[in-house]
Protein backbone atom coordinates (compact mmCIF):
# COMPACT_ATOMS: atom_id res chain seq x y z
CA UNK A 1 0.00 0.00 0.00
CA UNK A 2 2.72 2.47 1.03
CA UNK A 3 4.95 1.50 -1.89
CA UNK A 4 2.09 2.01 -4.32
CA UNK A 5 1.49 5.51 -2.99
CA UNK A 6 5.16 6.40 -3.31
CA UNK A 7 5.38 5.11 -6.88
CA UNK A 8 2.18 6.87 -7.88
CA UNK A 9 3.25 10.19 -6.37
CA UNK A 10 6.66 9.90 -7.98
CA UNK A 11 5.23 9.23 -11.41
CA UNK A 12 2.76 12.08 -11.06
CA UNK A 13 5.62 14.34 -10.12
CA UNK A 14 7.58 13.26 -13.20
CA UNK A 15 4.61 13.91 -15.47
CA UNK A 16 4.13 17.32 -13.87
CA UNK A 17 7.78 18.30 -14.30
CA UNK A 18 7.74 17.07 -17.89
CA UNK A 19 4.68 19.17 -18.63
CA UNK A 20 6.33 22.19 -17.04
CA UNK A 21 9.41 21.78 -19.21
CA UNK A 22 7.34 21.45 -22.36
CA UNK A 23 5.41 24.59 -21.40
CA UNK A 24 8.65 26.46 -20.76
CA UNK A 25 9.97 25.46 -24.17
CA UNK A 26 6.72 26.64 -25.76
CA UNK A 27 7.08 29.90 -23.86
CA UNK A 28 10.70 30.50 -24.85
CA UNK A 29 10.48 29.41 -28.47
CA UNK A 30 7.03 30.62 -29.36
CA UNK A 31 5.40 32.93 -26.87
CA UNK A 32 8.32 35.35 -26.43
CA UNK A 33 8.32 35.72 -30.21
CA UNK A 34 4.61 36.45 -30.34
CA UNK A 35 4.93 39.06 -27.62
CA UNK A 36 8.09 40.61 -29.06
CA UNK A 37 6.73 40.78 -32.62
CA UNK A 38 3.65 42.54 -31.33
CA UNK A 39 5.76 44.93 -29.25
CA UNK A 40 8.15 45.66 -32.10
CA UNK A 41 5.36 46.27 -34.61
CA UNK A 42 3.77 48.56 -32.05
CA UNK A 43 6.99 50.52 -31.63
CA UNK A 44 7.44 50.87 -35.39
CA UNK A 45 3.84 52.01 -35.84
CA UNK A 46 4.18 54.50 -33.03
CA UNK A 47 7.35 55.92 -34.54
CA UNK A 48 5.70 56.35 -37.94
CA UNK A 49 2.73 58.01 -36.33
CA UNK A 50 4.95 60.29 -34.30
CA UNK A 51 7.02 61.23 -37.36
CA UNK A 52 4.00 61.95 -39.50
CA UNK A 53 2.46 64.24 -36.89
CA UNK A 54 5.75 66.04 -36.38
CA UNK A 55 6.31 66.44 -40.09
CA UNK A 56 2.84 67.64 -40.90
CA UNK A 57 2.96 71.17 -39.43
CA UNK A 58 6.30 71.73 -41.10
CA UNK A 59 4.94 72.08 -44.59
CA UNK A 60 3.69 68.58 -45.32
CA UNK A 61 0.05 68.91 -46.18
CA UNK A 62 -2.63 66.28 -46.03
CA UNK A 63 -3.09 63.37 -48.40
CA UNK A 64 0.06 61.71 -47.25
CA UNK A 65 1.29 58.31 -48.22
CA UNK A 66 -0.73 58.45 -51.38
CA UNK A 67 1.94 56.97 -53.56
CA UNK A 68 3.61 54.60 -51.16
CA UNK A 69 4.99 51.41 -52.58
CA UNK A 70 2.76 48.68 -51.30
CA UNK A 71 3.57 45.71 -49.18
CA UNK A 72 5.98 47.33 -46.80
CA UNK A 73 5.83 49.45 -43.70
CA UNK A 74 5.90 53.02 -44.85
CA UNK A 75 9.21 54.69 -44.42
CA UNK A 76 8.59 57.71 -42.33
CA UNK A 77 6.14 60.49 -43.11
CA UNK A 78 5.63 61.04 -46.76
CA UNK A 79 8.05 59.96 -49.41
CA UNK A 80 7.28 62.41 -52.13
CA UNK A 81 10.17 62.72 -54.48
CA UNK A 82 11.38 66.12 -55.41
CA UNK A 83 10.17 67.97 -52.38
CA UNK A 84 12.81 70.17 -50.87
CA UNK A 85 13.16 69.92 -47.14
CA UNK A 86 13.18 73.63 -46.38
CA UNK A 87 12.48 73.12 -42.71
CA UNK A 88 15.36 70.80 -42.11
CA UNK A 89 17.83 71.63 -39.39
CA UNK A 90 20.93 73.04 -40.99
CA UNK A 91 24.14 71.32 -41.77
CA UNK A 92 22.93 68.00 -43.07
CA UNK A 93 23.02 67.21 -46.71
CA UNK A 94 21.66 64.59 -48.96
CA UNK A 95 23.84 62.34 -50.99
CA UNK A 96 27.23 60.91 -50.29
CA UNK A 97 29.32 62.13 -47.50
CA UNK A 98 32.67 60.94 -46.39
CA UNK A 99 33.06 62.34 -42.95
CA UNK A 100 34.17 65.83 -42.16
CA UNK A 101 30.95 67.75 -42.42
CA UNK A 102 28.82 68.12 -39.37
CA UNK A 103 25.59 66.32 -38.74
CA UNK A 104 23.09 67.89 -36.35
CA UNK A 105 23.29 66.59 -32.85
CA UNK A 106 20.93 63.74 -32.16
CA UNK A 107 18.58 64.55 -29.35
CA UNK A 108 19.39 62.29 -26.44
CA UNK A 109 16.69 59.69 -26.10
CA UNK A 110 14.88 58.58 -23.01
CA UNK A 111 15.96 55.14 -21.81
CA UNK A 112 13.81 52.49 -23.43
CA UNK A 113 12.29 54.87 -25.95
CA UNK A 114 12.35 53.96 -29.62
CA UNK A 115 13.88 56.53 -31.93
CA UNK A 116 14.71 54.80 -35.21
CA UNK A 117 13.73 51.94 -37.48
CA UNK A 118 16.29 49.59 -38.97
CA UNK A 119 15.90 47.78 -42.29
CA UNK A 120 18.24 45.03 -43.48
CA UNK A 121 17.16 43.85 -46.94
CA UNK A 122 19.41 40.77 -46.70
CA UNK A 123 17.37 39.51 -43.74
CA UNK A 124 14.12 39.79 -45.67
CA UNK A 125 12.24 42.52 -47.49
CA UNK A 126 9.82 42.85 -44.61
CA UNK A 127 12.56 42.99 -41.99
CA UNK A 128 12.00 46.21 -40.05
CA UNK A 129 12.81 46.56 -36.38
CA UNK A 130 12.65 49.46 -33.98
CA UNK A 131 15.81 50.71 -32.29
CA UNK A 132 15.39 51.63 -28.64
CA UNK A 133 17.70 53.47 -26.29
CA UNK A 134 19.63 51.17 -23.97
CA UNK A 135 20.50 47.49 -23.92
CA UNK A 136 18.73 46.30 -20.79
CA UNK A 137 16.83 43.03 -20.77
CA UNK A 138 13.47 44.76 -20.84
CA UNK A 139 14.47 47.01 -23.70
CA UNK A 140 15.65 44.12 -25.85
CA UNK A 141 12.27 42.44 -25.43
CA UNK A 142 10.72 45.27 -27.44
CA UNK A 143 13.28 45.76 -30.16
CA UNK A 144 16.94 46.36 -30.87
CA UNK A 145 18.93 48.23 -28.26
CA UNK A 146 21.27 51.16 -28.85
CA UNK A 147 24.22 51.00 -26.48
CA UNK A 148 24.28 53.96 -24.13
CA UNK A 149 27.40 56.08 -24.56
CA UNK A 150 27.96 55.14 -28.15
CA UNK A 151 27.52 57.65 -30.95
CA UNK A 152 24.08 58.63 -32.18
CA UNK A 153 22.62 57.61 -35.50
CA UNK A 154 24.71 58.98 -38.35
CA UNK A 155 27.17 60.70 -36.04
CA UNK A 156 30.91 60.36 -36.14
CA UNK A 157 31.81 57.43 -33.91
CA UNK A 158 30.19 54.10 -33.49
CA UNK A 159 26.43 53.64 -33.50
CA UNK A 160 26.28 50.29 -31.68
CA UNK A 161 23.14 48.17 -31.57
CA UNK A 162 22.42 44.86 -29.82
CA UNK A 163 19.64 42.43 -30.62
CA UNK A 164 18.41 38.95 -29.80
CA UNK A 165 19.68 36.13 -31.97
CA UNK A 166 17.05 33.74 -30.65
CA UNK A 167 13.86 34.20 -28.64
CA UNK A 168 11.95 37.47 -28.50
CA UNK A 169 11.21 37.52 -32.20
CA UNK A 170 14.66 36.31 -33.33
CA UNK A 171 15.56 39.71 -34.83
CA UNK A 172 19.22 38.88 -35.49
CA UNK A 173 18.75 35.18 -36.25
CA UNK A 174 20.26 35.50 -39.71
CA UNK A 175 23.00 37.97 -38.82
CA UNK A 176 25.71 35.54 -40.02
CA UNK A 177 24.22 35.83 -43.51
CA UNK A 178 25.42 39.43 -43.79
CA UNK A 179 28.26 39.98 -46.20
CA UNK A 180 30.48 42.84 -47.24
CA UNK A 181 28.49 45.53 -49.03
CA UNK A 182 25.09 44.56 -47.65
CA UNK A 183 22.94 47.53 -46.76
CA UNK A 184 21.78 48.33 -43.25
CA UNK A 185 19.31 51.19 -43.57
CA UNK A 186 18.08 53.26 -40.66
CA UNK A 187 15.72 56.17 -40.43
CA UNK A 188 15.03 58.56 -37.61
CA UNK A 189 12.02 60.11 -39.31
CA UNK A 190 13.89 62.89 -41.08
CA UNK A 191 16.80 61.12 -42.73
CA UNK A 192 17.60 57.77 -44.27
CA UNK A 193 21.02 56.48 -43.26
CA UNK A 194 22.43 53.74 -45.48
CA UNK A 195 25.29 51.83 -43.91
CA UNK A 196 27.30 49.22 -45.80
CA UNK A 197 28.61 46.12 -44.08
CA UNK A 198 32.39 45.66 -44.00
CA UNK A 199 33.76 42.13 -43.89
CA UNK A 200 32.17 38.95 -42.64
CA UNK A 201 30.61 38.67 -39.17
CA UNK A 202 33.25 38.58 -36.47
CA UNK A 203 33.18 36.22 -33.53
CA UNK A 204 34.55 37.42 -30.24
CA UNK A 205 34.50 37.03 -26.47
CA UNK A 206 31.53 38.26 -24.40
CA UNK A 207 33.61 40.93 -22.66
CA UNK A 208 35.27 42.36 -25.75
CA UNK A 209 33.89 45.88 -25.37
CA UNK A 210 36.51 47.24 -27.73
CA UNK A 211 34.24 46.25 -30.62
CA UNK A 212 31.88 49.13 -29.80
CA UNK A 213 34.65 51.72 -29.47
CA UNK A 214 34.39 54.82 -31.70
CA UNK A 215 36.97 53.14 -33.92
CA UNK A 216 36.08 49.49 -33.29
CA UNK A 217 38.95 47.22 -32.33
CA UNK A 218 39.36 44.32 -34.71
CA UNK A 219 37.19 45.80 -37.42
CA UNK A 220 39.95 46.92 -39.75
CA UNK A 221 38.70 50.51 -39.61
CA UNK A 222 41.68 52.79 -39.16
CA UNK A 223 40.63 56.36 -38.56
CA UNK A 224 37.54 58.00 -37.09
CA UNK A 225 34.41 57.62 -39.14
CA UNK A 226 30.68 57.04 -39.00
CA UNK A 227 30.43 53.39 -38.07
CA UNK A 228 27.69 50.97 -37.14
CA UNK A 229 28.14 47.89 -34.96
CA UNK A 230 25.59 45.11 -34.54
CA UNK A 231 26.07 42.61 -31.72
CA UNK A 232 24.23 39.42 -30.86
CA UNK A 233 24.96 36.12 -29.19
CA UNK A 234 27.02 33.29 -30.67
CA UNK A 235 26.42 30.39 -30.98
CA UNK A 236 22.78 30.66 -31.89
CA UNK A 237 21.45 29.20 -28.65
CA UNK A 238 24.42 29.87 -26.42
CA UNK A 239 26.21 32.73 -24.77
CA UNK A 240 29.86 31.72 -24.86
CA UNK A 241 30.68 34.23 -27.60
CA UNK A 242 29.30 37.27 -29.39
CA UNK A 243 28.81 37.85 -33.09
CA UNK A 244 29.76 41.31 -34.38
CA UNK A 245 28.93 42.98 -37.69
CA UNK A 246 30.49 46.30 -38.64
CA UNK A 247 29.37 48.77 -41.23
CA UNK A 248 30.20 52.31 -42.29
CA UNK A 249 27.88 55.13 -43.32
CA UNK A 250 27.64 55.15 -47.08
CA UNK A 251 24.91 57.67 -47.83
CA UNK A 252 22.22 59.80 -46.28
CA UNK A 253 19.02 61.04 -47.82
CA UNK A 254 16.15 63.15 -46.48
CA UNK A 255 12.98 61.11 -46.13
CA UNK A 256 11.19 63.68 -48.25
CA UNK A 257 13.22 62.47 -51.24
CA UNK A 258 11.94 58.94 -50.88
CA UNK A 259 13.47 55.65 -49.91
CA UNK A 260 17.12 54.95 -50.55
CA UNK A 261 17.99 52.65 -53.44
CA UNK A 262 18.93 49.85 -51.06
CA UNK A 263 15.29 49.47 -50.02
CA UNK A 264 13.78 49.67 -53.48
CA UNK A 265 15.25 46.61 -55.13
Amino acid sequence: MGARLVVRTLSELCVTIGTLIVLLVVYVLYWTGVRADRAMDGEVDRLHEQWSTVAQPAGQSAGQSAGQPAGRPTGGPTSRPGERPAERPGGQQAGRQSGGETVPQQPSHAPGASFAVMYIPRLGSGWAKPVLQGTGTDVLKRGLGHYDRTAGLGETGNFAVAGHRRTYGDPFKDLPELRSGDAVVLTDGTTWFTYRVDGAPYRTRPDDIGVIDPVPAGSGFRGPGRYLTLTTCEPEWGHSHRLIVWAHLDATRPVTEGKPRALLS
Binding site: L24, Y27, H164, I209, C233
Partner: peptide
Amino acid sequence: VYALFQYVFPWAEPLLPFNDVTVDNGMAV
Protein backbone atom coordinates in the same frame (compact mmCIF):
# COMPACT_ATOMS: atom_id res chain seq x y z
CA VAL B 1 -0.81 27.89 -17.29
CA TYR B 2 -1.74 31.58 -17.22
CA ALA B 3 0.22 32.12 -14.00
CA LEU B 4 3.21 30.30 -15.49
CA PHE B 5 3.22 32.32 -18.71
CA GLN B 6 2.50 35.61 -17.00
CA TYR B 7 4.70 35.44 -13.92
CA VAL B 8 6.88 32.35 -13.52
CA PHE B 9 8.40 31.99 -16.99
CA PRO B 10 9.18 35.71 -17.44
CA TRP B 11 11.07 35.45 -14.18
CA ALA B 12 12.86 32.23 -15.14
CA GLU B 13 13.65 33.07 -18.75
CA PRO B 14 16.51 35.55 -18.05
CA LEU B 15 18.29 32.72 -16.24
CA LEU B 16 18.62 30.98 -19.60
CA PRO B 17 21.52 32.07 -21.83
CA PHE B 18 19.49 33.61 -24.67
CA ASN B 19 19.63 37.14 -23.30
CA ASP B 20 23.36 37.66 -23.51
CA VAL B 21 23.59 39.60 -26.73
CA THR B 22 25.71 42.55 -25.66
CA VAL B 23 29.44 42.87 -25.24
CA ASP B 24 29.17 44.83 -22.01
CA ASN B 25 26.62 42.65 -20.21
CA GLY B 26 23.80 45.14 -20.64
CA MET B 27 25.54 47.74 -18.51
CA ALA B 28 27.09 50.99 -19.47
CA VAL B 29 30.70 50.35 -18.68
